[in-house]
Computed example of a mutant assay.
Amino acid sequence: MSELRKEVRLRTFLKGRIVFNNGNASMDCLVRDLSATGARLTLSQTAVLPDAFDLLIPAKDKLYKATLRWRRSDSVGVAFQNDRMETPAAPAAVETSAAVLLQRIHELETENATLRRLLAEAEAAMMDKIA
Protein backbone atom coordinates (compact mmCIF):
# COMPACT_ATOMS: atom_id res chain seq x y z
CA MET A 1 0.00 0.00 0.00
CA SER A 2 2.84 2.44 0.76
CA GLU A 3 4.09 2.34 -2.82
CA LEU A 4 0.75 3.79 -3.97
CA ARG A 5 1.02 6.82 -1.71
CA LYS A 6 2.13 10.16 -3.10
CA GLU A 7 3.34 11.39 0.29
CA VAL A 8 4.90 9.85 3.37
CA ARG A 9 2.53 9.46 6.28
CA LEU A 10 3.77 10.52 9.69
CA ARG A 11 3.02 8.26 12.65
CA THR A 12 0.64 9.94 15.06
CA PHE A 13 -1.45 9.17 18.11
CA LEU A 14 -4.21 11.76 17.84
CA LYS A 15 -7.82 11.61 18.90
CA GLY A 16 -10.18 11.97 15.98
CA ARG A 17 -13.91 12.14 15.42
CA ILE A 18 -15.65 10.70 12.36
CA VAL A 19 -18.80 12.69 11.56
CA PHE A 20 -21.39 11.58 9.01
CA ASN A 21 -25.11 11.54 8.23
CA ASN A 22 -25.24 15.35 8.04
CA GLY A 23 -23.66 15.64 11.50
CA ASN A 24 -26.30 13.40 13.11
CA ALA A 25 -23.91 10.49 13.68
CA SER A 26 -20.33 10.34 14.87
CA MET A 27 -17.75 8.04 16.41
CA ASP A 28 -14.36 8.38 18.01
CA CYS A 29 -11.19 7.09 16.39
CA LEU A 30 -7.42 7.30 16.69
CA VAL A 31 -5.42 8.84 13.86
CA ARG A 32 -2.38 6.57 13.63
CA ASP A 33 -0.80 7.87 10.39
CA LEU A 34 -1.36 11.23 8.76
CA SER A 35 -0.30 13.00 5.58
CA ALA A 36 -1.65 15.90 3.58
CA THR A 37 -3.59 13.47 1.36
CA GLY A 38 -4.81 10.75 3.73
CA ALA A 39 -4.69 8.91 7.03
CA ARG A 40 -4.94 5.55 8.76
CA LEU A 41 -7.55 5.44 11.50
CA THR A 42 -8.05 2.91 14.28
CA LEU A 43 -11.63 2.35 15.38
CA SER A 44 -12.68 0.99 18.75
CA GLN A 45 -16.16 0.19 17.49
CA THR A 46 -17.15 -2.16 14.74
CA ALA A 47 -19.40 -0.02 12.66
CA VAL A 48 -20.34 0.48 9.08
CA LEU A 49 -18.84 3.68 7.73
CA PRO A 50 -20.17 5.57 4.74
CA ASP A 51 -17.94 6.00 1.70
CA ALA A 52 -17.46 9.70 2.54
CA PHE A 53 -17.42 11.48 5.90
CA ASP A 54 -15.80 14.33 7.79
CA LEU A 55 -12.76 13.66 9.98
CA LEU A 56 -12.25 16.13 12.80
CA ILE A 57 -8.86 16.21 14.57
CA PRO A 58 -9.30 18.59 17.53
CA ALA A 59 -5.60 18.68 18.50
CA LYS A 60 -4.77 20.11 15.08
CA ASP A 61 -8.02 22.10 14.83
CA LYS A 62 -8.56 20.59 11.37
CA LEU A 63 -11.54 19.17 9.53
CA TYR A 64 -10.96 16.90 6.55
CA LYS A 65 -13.41 15.67 3.92
CA ALA A 66 -12.46 11.98 3.81
CA THR A 67 -13.20 9.08 1.49
CA LEU A 68 -12.93 5.48 2.69
CA ARG A 69 -10.24 3.60 0.70
CA TRP A 70 -9.71 0.33 2.58
CA ARG A 71 -10.68 -1.50 5.77
CA ARG A 72 -8.91 -4.20 7.80
CA SER A 73 -10.12 -5.51 11.20
CA ASP A 74 -9.95 -2.38 13.40
CA SER A 75 -8.26 0.00 10.92
CA VAL A 76 -9.39 1.99 7.92
CA GLY A 77 -7.50 4.00 5.34
CA VAL A 78 -8.92 7.28 4.12
CA ALA A 79 -8.00 9.72 1.39
CA PHE A 80 -8.78 13.37 1.77
CA GLN A 81 -11.02 14.67 -1.00
CA ASN A 82 -8.82 17.70 -1.55
CA ASP A 83 -5.23 18.43 -0.62
CA ARG A 84 -6.09 21.48 1.39
CA MET A 85 -7.00 21.13 5.04
CA GLU A 86 -9.97 23.06 6.33
CA THR A 87 -10.45 24.67 9.71
CA PRO A 88 -13.77 23.87 11.37
CA ALA A 89 -16.25 26.70 11.22
CA ALA A 90 -16.12 28.81 14.34
CA PRO A 91 -19.34 29.27 16.27
CA ALA A 92 -21.21 32.39 15.29
CA ALA A 93 -20.03 35.40 17.25
CA VAL A 94 -22.53 36.67 19.76
CA GLU A 95 -23.16 40.35 19.37
CA THR A 96 -23.36 42.17 22.67
CA SER A 97 -24.10 45.80 23.21
CA ALA A 98 -21.88 48.14 25.18
CA ALA A 99 -24.58 48.42 27.87
CA VAL A 100 -24.61 44.65 28.40
CA LEU A 101 -20.81 44.56 28.64
CA LEU A 102 -20.74 47.49 31.10
CA GLN A 103 -23.38 45.76 33.24
CA ARG A 104 -21.33 42.54 33.28
CA ILE A 105 -18.16 44.48 34.23
CA HIS A 106 -20.07 46.13 37.09
CA GLU A 107 -21.30 42.72 38.32
CA LEU A 108 -17.77 41.29 38.22
CA GLU A 109 -16.31 44.29 40.04
CA THR A 110 -18.96 43.94 42.77
CA GLU A 111 -18.24 40.21 43.09
CA ASN A 112 -14.50 40.92 43.23
CA ALA A 113 -14.99 43.48 46.01
CA THR A 114 -17.11 41.01 48.01
CA LEU A 115 -14.48 38.29 47.63
CA ARG A 116 -11.71 40.68 48.73
CA ARG A 117 -13.75 41.65 51.81
CA LEU A 118 -14.37 37.98 52.70
CA LEU A 119 -10.68 37.19 52.25
CA ALA A 120 -9.67 40.09 54.50
CA GLU A 121 -12.15 38.90 57.16
CA ALA A 122 -10.82 35.35 56.96
CA GLU A 123 -7.21 36.56 57.27
CA ALA A 124 -8.15 38.71 60.28
CA ALA A 125 -9.86 35.74 61.95
CA MET A 126 -6.75 33.59 61.37
CA MET A 127 -4.52 36.29 62.88
CA ASP A 128 -6.78 36.51 65.93
CA LYS A 129 -6.48 32.73 66.46
CA ILE A 130 -2.70 32.86 66.15
CA ALA A 131 -2.31 35.78 68.57
Rank of each mutant, 00 (worst) to 15 (best):
S2Q: 07
E3D: 10
E3Y: 00
K6V: 02
R9Y: 09
R11I: 05
R11A: 11
G16V: 09
R17N: 13
R17C: 14
R17E: 12
N21P: 06
N21C: 11
A25H: 11
M27P: 07
C29N: 01
C29A: 05
V31S: 07
V31I: 06
V31H: 08
R32Q: 15
R32A: 12
R32S: 15
D33W: 01
D33M: 04
S35N: 01
S35A: 06
A39E: 06
R40G: 01
L41Q: 13
T42C: 03
L43I: 07
S44T: 03
T46W: 01
A47D: 06
V48S: 13
P50F: 05
D51K: 12
D51F: 02
L55I: 10
L55S: 11
L55Q: 07
A59Q: 14
K60A: 07
K60I: 05
D61C: 03
K62F: 07
L63H: 09
Y64D: 02
K65D: 14
K65S: 15
R69K: 11
R69E: 05
W70G: 06
W70E: 08
R71D: 05
R72Y: 09
R72I: 15
S73V: 13
S73G: 05
D74Y: 02
D74P: 03
S75T: 07
S75V: 04
S75M: 05
V78Q: 13
F80G: 12
Q81I: 03
Q81L: 09
Q81P: 00
N82E: 15
D83E: 04
M85F: 12
M85K: 08
E86V: 00
E86Q: 10
E86R: 08
T87L: 11
T87Y: 11
T87K: 15
T87W: 05
T87F: 10
P88D: 05
A89R: 11
A92T: 07
A92W: 02
V94T: 09
E95Q: 14
S97E: 02
A98N: 12
A98M: 11
A99I: 03
V100T: 15
L102I: 03
L102G: 01
R104K: 07
R104P: 01
R104D: 13
R104I: 00
I105T: 00
L108Y: 08
E109C: 12
E109G: 12
E109M: 15
T110K: 15
T110Y: 09
E111G: 02
E111D: 05
E111N: 06
E111R: 06
E111H: 03
N112W: 04
N112L: 07
T114G: 10
L115A: 11
E121Q: 08
E121G: 00
A124G: 08
A125I: 03
M126W: 11
D128G: 03
K129W: 05
I130G: 01
I130E: 14
I130D: 02
A131S: 06
A131F: 00
